[in-house]
Design a protein around this nucleic acid. Structure first.
Length: 497
RNA sequence: GGCCUUAUCGUCUAAUGGUUAGGACACCAGGUUUUCAACCUGAUAAUCGGAGUUCGAUUCUCCGUAGGGCUACCA
Protein backbone atom coordinates (compact mmCIF):
# COMPACT_ATOMS: atom_id res chain seq x y z
CA UNK A 1 0.00 0.00 0.00
CA UNK A 2 2.89 2.35 0.73
CA UNK A 3 5.88 3.89 -0.94
CA UNK A 4 6.97 1.00 -3.07
CA UNK A 5 4.40 1.77 -5.71
CA UNK A 6 5.58 0.99 -9.16
CA UNK A 7 6.36 3.92 -11.40
CA UNK A 8 4.39 3.74 -14.63
CA UNK A 9 3.94 6.47 -17.21
CA UNK A 10 2.18 6.38 -20.52
CA UNK A 11 2.13 8.18 -23.80
CA UNK A 12 -1.47 8.43 -24.91
CA UNK A 13 -1.64 9.88 -28.40
CA UNK A 14 -4.60 10.05 -30.74
CA UNK A 15 -3.86 8.48 -34.08
CA UNK A 16 -4.67 11.60 -36.05
CA UNK A 17 -1.51 11.94 -38.12
CA UNK A 18 2.19 12.32 -37.67
CA UNK A 19 3.94 12.91 -34.37
CA UNK A 20 3.83 16.58 -33.53
CA UNK A 21 6.99 18.12 -32.15
CA UNK A 22 5.07 19.09 -29.01
CA UNK A 23 4.01 15.48 -28.55
CA UNK A 24 7.59 14.44 -28.99
CA UNK A 25 8.52 16.58 -26.05
CA UNK A 26 5.65 15.20 -23.99
CA UNK A 27 6.77 11.70 -24.96
CA UNK A 28 10.38 12.48 -24.10
CA UNK A 29 9.56 13.92 -20.69
CA UNK A 30 7.28 11.00 -19.88
CA UNK A 31 9.91 8.54 -20.98
CA UNK A 32 12.69 10.26 -19.05
CA UNK A 33 10.63 10.65 -15.93
CA UNK A 34 9.79 6.95 -16.06
CA UNK A 35 13.34 5.86 -16.72
CA UNK A 36 14.86 8.22 -14.16
CA UNK A 37 12.76 6.41 -11.57
CA UNK A 38 13.35 2.97 -13.08
CA UNK A 39 9.73 2.81 -14.14
CA UNK A 40 7.80 1.57 -17.13
CA UNK A 41 6.85 3.54 -20.21
CA UNK A 42 3.65 2.54 -21.91
CA UNK A 43 1.99 3.33 -25.21
CA UNK A 44 -1.78 3.58 -25.25
CA UNK A 45 -3.68 4.65 -28.34
CA UNK A 46 -6.61 6.97 -27.67
CA UNK A 47 -8.74 6.48 -30.73
CA UNK A 48 -12.14 7.33 -29.32
CA UNK A 49 -12.80 9.87 -32.05
CA UNK A 50 -13.28 7.84 -35.18
CA UNK A 51 -13.87 10.94 -37.27
CA UNK A 52 -10.38 12.25 -36.78
CA UNK A 53 -8.60 8.97 -37.07
CA UNK A 54 -5.97 8.64 -39.79
CA UNK A 55 -5.15 5.23 -41.21
CA UNK A 56 -1.58 4.17 -40.58
CA UNK A 57 -1.02 6.74 -37.87
CA UNK A 58 -0.36 4.15 -35.18
CA UNK A 59 2.27 2.39 -37.25
CA UNK A 60 3.98 5.60 -38.20
CA UNK A 61 3.96 6.71 -34.58
CA UNK A 62 5.61 3.51 -33.43
CA UNK A 63 8.11 3.77 -36.24
CA UNK A 64 9.10 7.33 -35.48
CA UNK A 65 9.40 6.65 -31.76
CA UNK A 66 11.66 3.80 -32.66
CA UNK A 67 13.76 6.07 -34.82
CA UNK A 68 13.97 8.58 -31.99
CA UNK A 69 15.11 5.81 -29.69
CA UNK A 70 12.39 5.91 -27.07
CA UNK A 71 11.40 2.37 -26.25
CA UNK A 72 8.09 1.31 -24.79
CA UNK A 73 7.77 -1.42 -22.18
CA UNK A 74 4.14 -2.11 -23.06
CA UNK A 75 1.94 -1.14 -25.95
CA UNK A 76 -0.27 -2.38 -28.77
CA UNK A 77 2.76 -3.50 -30.78
CA UNK A 78 4.43 -5.48 -27.99
CA UNK A 79 1.61 -6.35 -25.62
CA UNK A 80 1.77 -6.28 -21.84
CA UNK A 81 -0.30 -7.30 -18.87
CA UNK A 82 -2.93 -4.61 -19.33
CA UNK A 83 -4.01 -5.34 -22.90
CA UNK A 84 -5.57 -4.15 -25.05
CA UNK A 85 -3.68 -0.88 -25.42
CA UNK A 86 -6.03 0.56 -27.99
CA UNK A 87 -9.10 2.25 -26.60
CA UNK A 88 -11.43 1.24 -29.41
CA UNK A 89 -10.82 -2.33 -28.28
CA UNK A 90 -11.78 -1.56 -24.70
CA UNK A 91 -15.40 -0.56 -25.22
CA UNK A 92 -16.72 -3.38 -23.01
CA UNK A 93 -14.55 -2.17 -20.19
CA UNK A 94 -15.87 1.36 -20.47
CA UNK A 95 -19.43 0.07 -20.50
CA UNK A 96 -18.85 -1.70 -17.24
CA UNK A 97 -17.42 1.39 -15.58
CA UNK A 98 -20.14 3.60 -16.99
CA UNK A 99 -22.71 1.49 -15.20
CA UNK A 100 -20.66 1.57 -12.05
CA UNK A 101 -20.49 5.36 -12.21
CA UNK A 102 -24.22 5.63 -12.89
CA UNK A 103 -24.88 3.47 -9.84
CA UNK A 104 -22.60 5.64 -7.76
CA UNK A 105 -24.55 8.69 -8.88
CA UNK A 106 -21.50 10.20 -10.53
CA UNK A 107 -23.16 10.57 -13.92
CA UNK A 108 -26.53 10.83 -15.60
CA UNK A 109 -28.05 10.32 -19.03
CA UNK A 110 -28.81 13.43 -21.07
CA UNK A 111 -31.28 13.49 -23.93
CA UNK A 112 -30.67 17.03 -25.15
CA UNK A 113 -30.12 17.13 -28.88
CA UNK A 114 -27.31 18.95 -30.64
CA UNK A 115 -29.83 21.57 -31.74
CA UNK A 116 -31.06 22.05 -28.17
CA UNK A 117 -27.49 22.60 -27.08
CA UNK A 118 -26.54 25.12 -29.75
CA UNK A 119 -29.73 27.03 -29.06
CA UNK A 120 -29.00 27.00 -25.37
CA UNK A 121 -25.45 28.25 -25.92
CA UNK A 122 -26.59 31.00 -28.20
CA UNK A 123 -29.07 32.24 -25.64
CA UNK A 124 -26.39 32.16 -22.99
CA UNK A 125 -23.89 34.12 -25.01
CA UNK A 126 -26.59 36.58 -26.02
CA UNK A 127 -27.14 37.18 -22.33
CA UNK A 128 -23.32 37.53 -21.96
CA UNK A 129 -23.20 34.40 -19.89
CA UNK A 130 -20.55 31.75 -20.20
CA UNK A 131 -21.87 28.97 -22.45
CA UNK A 132 -22.34 25.98 -20.22
CA UNK A 133 -24.69 22.99 -20.18
CA UNK A 134 -27.77 24.00 -18.22
CA UNK A 135 -28.12 20.62 -16.54
CA UNK A 136 -31.61 20.21 -17.87
CA UNK A 137 -31.49 16.41 -17.82
CA UNK A 138 -29.73 16.19 -14.49
CA UNK A 139 -32.95 16.04 -12.56
CA UNK A 140 -34.90 13.69 -14.75
CA UNK A 141 -36.72 11.05 -12.73
CA UNK A 142 -35.98 7.38 -13.21
CA UNK A 143 -39.37 6.99 -14.88
CA UNK A 144 -38.72 9.84 -17.31
CA UNK A 145 -35.38 8.36 -18.24
CA UNK A 146 -36.90 4.95 -18.84
CA UNK A 147 -39.62 6.43 -20.94
CA UNK A 148 -37.25 8.39 -23.16
CA UNK A 149 -35.05 5.35 -23.57
CA UNK A 150 -38.07 3.25 -24.46
CA UNK A 151 -38.95 5.80 -27.12
CA UNK A 152 -35.54 5.25 -28.62
CA UNK A 153 -34.26 8.77 -27.92
CA UNK A 154 -30.49 8.99 -28.29
CA UNK A 155 -28.65 10.07 -25.18
CA UNK A 156 -25.21 10.80 -23.83
CA UNK A 157 -23.87 10.28 -20.33
CA UNK A 158 -22.74 13.38 -18.50
CA UNK A 159 -20.54 13.71 -15.47
CA UNK A 160 -22.51 14.81 -12.40
CA UNK A 161 -20.39 17.47 -10.76
CA UNK A 162 -20.99 19.01 -7.33
CA UNK A 163 -23.06 22.16 -7.76
CA UNK A 164 -20.99 24.61 -5.71
CA UNK A 165 -18.01 25.08 -3.48
CA UNK A 166 -14.47 24.85 -4.71
CA UNK A 167 -11.91 22.24 -5.46
CA UNK A 168 -8.17 22.39 -5.06
CA UNK A 169 -6.16 20.16 -7.36
CA UNK A 170 -2.45 19.54 -7.22
CA UNK A 171 0.02 19.66 -10.07
CA UNK A 172 3.55 18.48 -9.32
CA UNK A 173 5.06 21.43 -11.16
CA UNK A 174 2.67 24.26 -10.35
CA UNK A 175 1.41 23.32 -6.92
CA UNK A 176 -2.19 23.76 -5.86
CA UNK A 177 -4.71 25.16 -8.30
CA UNK A 178 -8.11 26.34 -7.12
CA UNK A 179 -11.32 26.13 -9.14
CA UNK A 180 -14.85 27.21 -8.36
CA UNK A 181 -17.29 24.39 -9.04
CA UNK A 182 -19.75 26.87 -10.50
CA UNK A 183 -17.34 27.46 -13.37
CA UNK A 184 -17.35 23.81 -14.32
CA UNK A 185 -19.84 22.06 -16.54
CA UNK A 186 -21.33 18.58 -16.59
CA UNK A 187 -19.47 17.49 -19.67
CA UNK A 188 -20.06 14.46 -21.82
CA UNK A 189 -18.42 11.22 -20.71
CA UNK A 190 -20.08 8.82 -23.12
CA UNK A 191 -21.17 9.93 -26.57
CA UNK A 192 -24.53 8.89 -28.01
CA UNK A 193 -22.87 6.11 -30.00
CA UNK A 194 -21.65 4.59 -26.74
CA UNK A 195 -18.03 5.53 -27.25
CA UNK A 196 -16.41 7.38 -24.35
CA UNK A 197 -14.80 10.78 -24.64
CA UNK A 198 -11.21 11.45 -23.65
CA UNK A 199 -12.31 12.54 -20.22
CA UNK A 200 -13.75 9.15 -19.39
CA UNK A 201 -11.59 6.66 -21.26
CA UNK A 202 -8.38 8.36 -20.21
CA UNK A 203 -9.16 8.25 -16.51
CA UNK A 204 -10.51 4.69 -16.55
CA UNK A 205 -7.47 3.44 -18.43
CA UNK A 206 -4.94 5.31 -16.35
CA UNK A 207 -6.50 3.73 -13.30
CA UNK A 208 -6.74 0.24 -14.77
CA UNK A 209 -3.23 0.38 -16.18
CA UNK A 210 -1.90 1.57 -12.82
CA UNK A 211 -0.40 4.76 -14.19
CA UNK A 212 1.47 6.48 -11.36
CA UNK A 213 2.36 9.78 -13.03
CA UNK A 214 0.27 11.47 -15.67
CA UNK A 215 2.23 13.69 -18.03
CA UNK A 216 0.16 15.70 -20.47
CA UNK A 217 0.09 19.08 -22.14
CA UNK A 218 -1.11 22.01 -20.09
CA UNK A 219 -4.02 22.51 -22.48
CA UNK A 220 -5.65 19.96 -20.14
CA UNK A 221 -5.40 22.19 -17.09
CA UNK A 222 -8.96 23.52 -17.43
CA UNK A 223 -10.42 20.00 -17.26
CA UNK A 224 -8.09 18.91 -14.49
CA UNK A 225 -10.66 19.41 -11.67
CA UNK A 226 -13.26 17.39 -13.56
CA UNK A 227 -10.76 14.58 -13.98
CA UNK A 228 -9.99 14.58 -10.28
CA UNK A 229 -13.68 14.61 -9.45
CA UNK A 230 -14.14 11.56 -11.62
CA UNK A 231 -11.42 9.70 -9.75
CA UNK A 232 -13.21 10.66 -6.55
CA UNK A 233 -16.60 9.48 -7.82
CA UNK A 234 -15.09 6.10 -8.52
CA UNK A 235 -13.24 6.13 -5.23
CA UNK A 236 -9.93 5.62 -7.00
CA UNK A 237 -6.51 6.76 -5.96
CA UNK A 238 -5.38 9.81 -7.95
CA UNK A 239 -2.04 9.58 -9.74
CA UNK A 240 0.46 12.43 -9.70
CA UNK A 241 -0.16 14.97 -12.42
CA UNK A 242 2.48 16.86 -14.34
CA UNK A 243 1.18 19.37 -16.85
CA UNK A 244 3.79 20.24 -19.42
CA UNK A 245 3.97 23.69 -20.98
CA UNK A 246 3.41 24.11 -24.68
CA UNK A 247 5.92 24.76 -27.41
CA UNK A 248 5.31 27.96 -29.34
CA UNK A 249 6.43 29.25 -32.71
CA UNK A 250 8.72 32.21 -33.30
CA UNK A 251 5.88 34.69 -33.08
CA UNK A 252 4.68 33.25 -29.79
CA UNK A 253 1.68 31.42 -31.19
CA UNK A 254 0.81 27.77 -31.08
CA UNK A 255 3.15 25.61 -33.12
CA UNK A 256 0.94 24.65 -36.01
CA UNK A 257 1.15 23.30 -39.51
CA UNK A 258 0.61 26.67 -41.07
CA UNK A 259 3.98 28.18 -40.35
CA UNK A 260 6.36 25.39 -41.17
CA UNK A 261 7.44 22.05 -39.96
CA UNK A 262 5.73 20.68 -36.89
CA UNK A 263 6.04 16.94 -37.34
CA UNK A 264 8.98 14.86 -36.29
CA UNK A 265 8.82 13.04 -39.62
CA UNK A 266 9.46 16.32 -41.41
CA UNK A 267 12.62 16.88 -39.43
CA UNK A 268 13.72 13.35 -40.08
CA UNK A 269 13.17 13.86 -43.79
CA UNK A 270 15.08 17.09 -43.72
CA UNK A 271 18.13 15.36 -42.37
CA UNK A 272 18.01 16.01 -38.67
CA UNK A 273 19.42 13.37 -36.37
CA UNK A 274 17.33 11.94 -33.54
CA UNK A 275 20.10 12.75 -31.07
CA UNK A 276 19.91 16.41 -32.03
CA UNK A 277 16.14 16.48 -31.89
CA UNK A 278 15.89 15.06 -28.40
CA UNK A 279 18.79 17.08 -27.07
CA UNK A 280 17.14 20.20 -28.38
CA UNK A 281 13.70 19.21 -27.11
CA UNK A 282 14.76 18.18 -23.65
CA UNK A 283 16.23 21.60 -23.00
CA UNK A 284 12.91 23.19 -23.88
CA UNK A 285 11.59 23.19 -20.35
CA UNK A 286 14.20 21.20 -18.50
CA UNK A 287 17.70 22.03 -17.35
CA UNK A 288 20.31 19.72 -15.87
CA UNK A 289 22.01 20.53 -12.58
CA UNK A 290 25.18 21.55 -14.39
CA UNK A 291 25.78 23.69 -17.45
CA UNK A 292 26.58 20.88 -19.84
CA UNK A 293 24.07 21.15 -22.64
CA UNK A 294 25.15 18.36 -24.93
CA UNK A 295 23.48 15.26 -23.53
CA UNK A 296 22.97 11.73 -24.76
CA UNK A 297 19.72 9.91 -24.09
CA UNK A 298 21.48 7.79 -21.47
CA UNK A 299 22.76 10.86 -19.68
CA UNK A 300 19.29 12.35 -19.76
CA UNK A 301 17.82 9.19 -18.28
CA UNK A 302 20.25 9.47 -15.40
CA UNK A 303 19.96 13.18 -14.79
CA UNK A 304 16.34 13.91 -15.51
CA UNK A 305 14.34 15.14 -12.53
CA UNK A 306 11.15 16.98 -11.82
CA UNK A 307 12.89 19.85 -10.06
CA UNK A 308 14.78 20.79 -13.20
CA UNK A 309 11.59 21.37 -15.09
CA UNK A 310 10.09 24.74 -15.87
CA UNK A 311 6.47 25.78 -16.24
CA UNK A 312 6.52 28.48 -18.89
CA UNK A 313 6.02 27.77 -22.56
CA UNK A 314 9.04 27.73 -24.84
CA UNK A 315 9.64 29.03 -28.33
CA UNK A 316 10.92 26.58 -30.90
CA UNK A 317 14.14 28.07 -32.28
CA UNK A 318 15.34 26.29 -35.38
CA UNK A 319 18.81 27.90 -35.17
CA UNK A 320 19.51 26.02 -31.99
CA UNK A 321 18.29 22.76 -33.51
CA UNK A 322 20.68 23.34 -36.42
CA UNK A 323 23.49 23.86 -33.99
CA UNK A 324 22.79 20.58 -32.22
CA UNK A 325 22.47 18.78 -35.51
CA UNK A 326 25.91 20.04 -36.53
CA UNK A 327 27.36 18.92 -33.23
CA UNK A 328 25.98 15.40 -33.61
CA UNK A 329 26.94 15.11 -37.27
CA UNK A 330 30.52 16.05 -36.46
CA UNK A 331 30.55 13.50 -33.67
CA UNK A 332 29.76 10.66 -36.08
CA UNK A 333 32.47 8.51 -37.60
CA UNK A 334 32.91 8.65 -41.38
CA UNK A 335 31.49 5.16 -41.65
CA UNK A 336 28.41 6.03 -39.63
CA UNK A 337 27.85 9.08 -41.77
CA UNK A 338 28.25 7.08 -44.95
CA UNK A 339 25.44 4.78 -43.86
CA UNK A 340 23.20 7.74 -43.07
CA UNK A 341 24.11 9.69 -46.19
CA UNK A 342 24.03 7.04 -48.86
CA UNK A 343 20.25 6.84 -49.21
CA UNK A 344 20.14 10.61 -49.75
CA UNK A 345 23.18 11.01 -51.94
CA UNK A 346 22.97 11.56 -55.70
CA UNK A 347 26.31 10.02 -56.37
CA UNK A 348 27.76 9.60 -59.82
CA UNK A 349 25.78 7.17 -61.91
CA UNK A 350 27.95 7.31 -65.06
CA UNK A 351 31.05 5.94 -63.44
CA UNK A 352 30.85 2.18 -63.52
CA UNK A 353 32.15 1.67 -60.04
CA UNK A 354 31.55 -1.37 -57.92
CA UNK A 355 29.65 -0.83 -54.71
CA UNK A 356 32.87 -1.06 -52.79
CA UNK A 357 34.77 1.37 -55.02
CA UNK A 358 31.88 3.76 -54.73
CA UNK A 359 31.88 3.51 -50.94
CA UNK A 360 35.60 4.10 -50.86
CA UNK A 361 35.18 7.23 -52.91
CA UNK A 362 32.34 8.51 -50.75
CA UNK A 363 34.33 7.76 -47.65
CA UNK A 364 37.09 10.00 -48.98
CA UNK A 365 34.61 12.82 -49.54
CA UNK A 366 32.96 12.71 -46.13
CA UNK A 367 35.82 14.18 -44.06
CA UNK A 368 35.95 17.16 -46.41
CA UNK A 369 32.31 18.13 -45.87
CA UNK A 370 31.54 16.75 -42.44
CA UNK A 371 31.87 20.02 -40.62
CA UNK A 372 29.98 21.89 -43.31
CA UNK A 373 26.89 19.71 -43.01
CA UNK A 374 24.05 21.34 -41.13
CA UNK A 375 21.58 18.65 -42.04
CA UNK A 376 22.12 15.34 -43.79
CA UNK A 377 20.22 16.66 -46.80
CA UNK A 378 22.85 19.30 -47.46
CA UNK A 379 25.00 16.52 -48.85
CA UNK A 380 24.09 16.95 -52.51
CA UNK A 381 24.54 20.70 -52.70
CA UNK A 382 27.87 20.31 -50.96
CA UNK A 383 29.37 17.52 -53.02
CA UNK A 384 28.16 17.89 -56.62
CA UNK A 385 31.62 18.85 -57.88
CA UNK A 386 33.08 15.52 -56.75
CA UNK A 387 31.13 13.77 -59.47
CA UNK A 388 31.34 14.02 -63.25
CA UNK A 389 34.12 15.11 -65.53
CA UNK A 390 33.37 18.75 -66.08
CA UNK A 391 32.24 21.47 -63.77
CA UNK A 392 30.80 24.87 -64.53
CA UNK A 393 31.64 28.19 -62.95
CA UNK A 394 30.99 31.86 -63.55
CA UNK A 395 33.87 33.55 -65.32
CA UNK A 396 34.23 36.32 -62.76
CA UNK A 397 34.26 33.90 -59.88
CA UNK A 398 37.67 32.54 -60.70
CA UNK A 399 39.34 35.97 -60.64
CA UNK A 400 40.81 36.55 -57.19
CA UNK A 401 40.61 40.14 -56.01
CA UNK A 402 42.55 42.38 -58.44
CA UNK A 403 43.85 39.52 -60.50
CA UNK A 404 43.25 39.81 -64.26
CA UNK A 405 42.13 36.97 -66.47
CA UNK A 406 45.62 36.83 -68.00
CA UNK A 407 47.31 36.53 -64.61
CA UNK A 408 44.80 33.95 -63.45
CA UNK A 409 45.42 31.85 -66.52
CA UNK A 410 49.18 32.08 -66.02
CA UNK A 411 48.90 31.17 -62.38
CA UNK A 412 46.77 28.15 -63.15
CA UNK A 413 49.29 27.02 -65.75
CA UNK A 414 52.11 27.39 -63.24
CA UNK A 415 50.14 25.36 -60.72
CA UNK A 416 49.54 22.74 -63.33
CA UNK A 417 53.23 22.37 -63.98
CA UNK A 418 53.97 22.05 -60.27
CA UNK A 419 51.18 19.56 -59.70
CA UNK A 420 52.34 17.39 -62.55
CA UNK A 421 55.58 16.88 -60.69
CA UNK A 422 53.67 15.09 -57.94
CA UNK A 423 53.29 11.41 -58.48
CA UNK A 424 50.16 9.34 -58.15
CA UNK A 425 51.46 7.72 -54.99
CA UNK A 426 52.08 11.03 -53.18
CA UNK A 427 48.73 12.39 -54.29
CA UNK A 428 46.95 13.05 -51.05
CA UNK A 429 45.87 16.13 -49.18
CA UNK A 430 48.75 16.40 -46.73
CA UNK A 431 51.51 15.97 -49.30
CA UNK A 432 49.83 18.23 -51.83
CA UNK A 433 49.41 20.98 -49.30
CA UNK A 434 52.92 20.70 -47.95
CA UNK A 435 54.58 20.80 -51.36
CA UNK A 436 52.39 23.39 -52.98
CA UNK A 437 52.35 25.80 -50.07
CA UNK A 438 56.08 25.27 -49.77
CA UNK A 439 56.49 26.14 -53.43
CA UNK A 440 54.35 29.27 -53.10
CA UNK A 441 56.27 30.43 -50.05
CA UNK A 442 59.77 29.87 -51.47
CA UNK A 443 58.91 31.53 -54.75
CA UNK A 444 57.36 34.38 -52.73
CA UNK A 445 54.01 34.21 -54.42
CA UNK A 446 50.80 35.40 -52.87
CA UNK A 447 48.92 32.37 -51.68
CA UNK A 448 45.49 33.72 -52.56
CA UNK A 449 46.49 34.51 -56.13
CA UNK A 450 47.02 30.83 -56.73
CA UNK A 451 44.85 28.90 -54.36
CA UNK A 452 41.61 30.75 -54.99
CA UNK A 453 41.71 30.11 -58.76
CA UNK A 454 42.78 26.54 -58.12
CA UNK A 455 39.88 25.91 -55.78
CA UNK A 456 37.36 27.46 -58.16
CA UNK A 457 38.80 25.50 -61.08
CA UNK A 458 38.22 22.31 -59.13
CA UNK A 459 34.87 23.04 -57.51
CA UNK A 460 33.24 25.85 -59.45
CA UNK A 461 31.94 27.21 -56.16
CA UNK A 462 32.26 30.35 -54.13
CA UNK A 463 32.37 28.32 -50.94
CA UNK A 464 33.75 24.82 -50.71
CA UNK A 465 36.33 22.66 -48.99
CA UNK A 466 39.94 23.68 -49.55
CA UNK A 467 41.73 22.98 -52.86
CA UNK A 468 44.06 20.33 -51.47
CA UNK A 469 41.28 18.40 -49.81
CA UNK A 470 39.35 18.45 -53.05
CA UNK A 471 42.35 17.60 -55.22
CA UNK A 472 43.17 14.73 -52.90
CA UNK A 473 39.72 13.25 -53.37
CA UNK A 474 39.47 13.92 -57.11
CA UNK A 475 42.79 12.28 -57.82
CA UNK A 476 45.70 13.33 -60.01
CA UNK A 477 44.11 12.76 -63.37
CA UNK A 478 40.83 14.54 -62.80
CA UNK A 479 42.48 17.43 -60.97
CA UNK A 480 44.83 18.14 -63.85
CA UNK A 481 42.01 17.76 -66.33
CA UNK A 482 39.86 20.33 -64.53
CA UNK A 483 42.78 22.73 -64.32
CA UNK A 484 43.25 22.38 -68.01
CA UNK A 485 39.58 23.00 -68.66
CA UNK A 486 39.72 26.15 -66.56
CA UNK A 487 42.72 27.45 -68.47
CA UNK A 488 40.95 26.89 -71.78
CA UNK A 489 37.84 28.59 -70.49
CA UNK A 490 39.78 31.66 -69.43
CA UNK A 491 41.46 31.83 -72.82
CA UNK A 492 38.12 32.04 -74.59
CA UNK A 493 36.93 34.50 -71.99
CA UNK A 494 39.98 36.67 -72.75
CA UNK A 495 39.50 36.61 -76.49
CA UNK A 496 35.96 37.79 -75.97
CA UNK A 497 37.07 40.83 -74.04
C1' G B 1 -16.78 37.60 -22.38
C1' G B 2 -15.68 33.70 -18.42
C1' C B 3 -12.12 30.34 -16.29
C1' C B 4 -7.06 28.58 -15.95
C1' U B 5 -2.03 29.66 -16.63
C1' U B 6 2.77 32.04 -17.64
C1' A B 7 6.39 36.30 -17.27
C1' U B 8 15.09 36.83 -16.42
C1' C B 9 19.34 38.80 -22.60
C1' G B 10 16.30 38.27 -29.60
C1' U B 11 15.67 32.62 -28.21
C1' C B 12 16.32 28.25 -24.54
C1' U B 13 17.46 28.89 -19.59
C1' A B 14 20.59 29.23 -14.44
C1' A B 15 20.75 31.65 -9.70
C1' U B 16 19.60 34.41 -5.20
C1' G B 17 15.84 38.14 0.28
C1' G B 18 22.24 41.23 -0.38
C1' U B 19 25.70 38.32 -7.07
C1' U B 20 30.08 42.19 -11.55
C1' A B 21 22.40 38.36 -12.51
C1' G B 22 25.75 32.74 -14.90
C1' G B 23 25.59 29.32 -19.32
C1' A B 24 23.98 27.90 -24.42
C1' C B 25 22.13 29.34 -29.45
C1' A B 26 21.77 33.50 -32.62
C1' C B 27 24.03 38.24 -33.64
C1' C B 28 28.55 41.50 -33.84
C1' A B 29 34.04 42.10 -33.65
C1' G B 30 38.81 39.86 -33.81
C1' G B 31 42.06 35.51 -34.58
C1' U B 32 43.11 31.26 -37.84
C1' U B 33 42.79 31.17 -43.30
C1' U B 34 42.68 30.76 -50.53
C1' U B 35 36.70 30.70 -49.79
C1' C B 36 33.04 28.53 -46.75
C1' A B 37 32.61 25.71 -42.56
C1' A B 38 34.77 24.20 -38.07
C1' C B 39 37.71 26.05 -34.15
C1' C B 40 39.65 29.95 -30.55
C1' U B 41 39.11 34.90 -28.15
C1' G B 42 36.16 38.95 -27.06
C1' A B 43 31.87 42.33 -27.10
C1' U B 44 26.68 43.77 -27.01
C1' A B 45 22.34 41.94 -24.59
C1' A B 46 17.67 40.46 -19.57
C1' U B 47 14.92 40.26 -14.15
C1' C B 48 7.17 43.32 -17.92
C1' G B 49 4.93 47.79 -15.01
C1' G B 50 3.03 49.77 -10.29
C1' A B 51 2.23 49.38 -5.22
C1' G B 52 3.18 46.72 -0.55
C1' U B 53 6.30 43.60 3.09
C1' U B 54 11.64 44.34 4.27
C1' C B 55 17.47 47.59 6.38
C1' G B 56 17.46 45.49 1.43
C1' A B 57 13.14 42.46 -3.63
C1' U B 58 14.57 40.21 -9.73
C1' U B 59 13.17 36.66 -5.76
C1' C B 60 7.57 37.09 -1.20
C1' U B 61 2.23 39.48 -1.57
C1' C B 62 -1.37 42.28 -4.25
C1' C B 63 -2.98 44.97 -8.53
C1' G B 64 -2.19 45.87 -13.51
C1' U B 65 -0.16 44.66 -18.46
C1' A B 66 1.17 41.28 -22.07
C1' G B 67 1.37 36.25 -23.94
C1' G B 68 -0.67 31.30 -24.03
C1' G B 69 -4.51 27.61 -23.12
C1' C B 70 -9.60 26.03 -22.41
C1' U B 71 -14.63 27.34 -23.06
C1' A B 72 -17.43 20.31 -28.51
C1' C B 73 -21.27 14.08 -28.36
C1' C B 74 -12.07 16.62 -30.61
C1' A B 75 -8.15 15.02 -28.18
Amino acid sequence: MKNMKEVRLRLAPSPTGFLHIGNLRTALFGYLLAKSMRGQFILRIEDTDQKREVVGAVDSLIEIMNWIGLKFDEGPHIGGSYSPYIQSKRLDIYKKYTNELLNKDGAYPCFCSADDLTKMRKEQTDRHEAPRYNRKCRHLSQAEVEEKKANGLPFVIRQKLPLDGEIVVHDELRGDIKFKLTDLEDHVLIKSDGVPTYHFANIVDDHLMKISHVTRGDEWLPSFPKNILLYQSFGWEVPKFIHLPLILNKTGGKLSKRQGDVFVEQYKDKGYLPEALINFCVLLGWHPKHDKEILSLTEMEQEFALDGMGVSSAVFDIDKLDYYNGVYIRAKSDEELLALLKPLWNTCAEKSLTEQQNDEYLLKIIPTIKERLKTLNDINSLTGFYFGEKIEFDNELILWKALTAEQTKNNLEEISIELEKISEKDWHKEYLEKTMVGWLKTSEKKVGDYLWPLRVALTGLKASPGPFEVAGVLGRELTLKRLNQAVLKIKTLKSNL
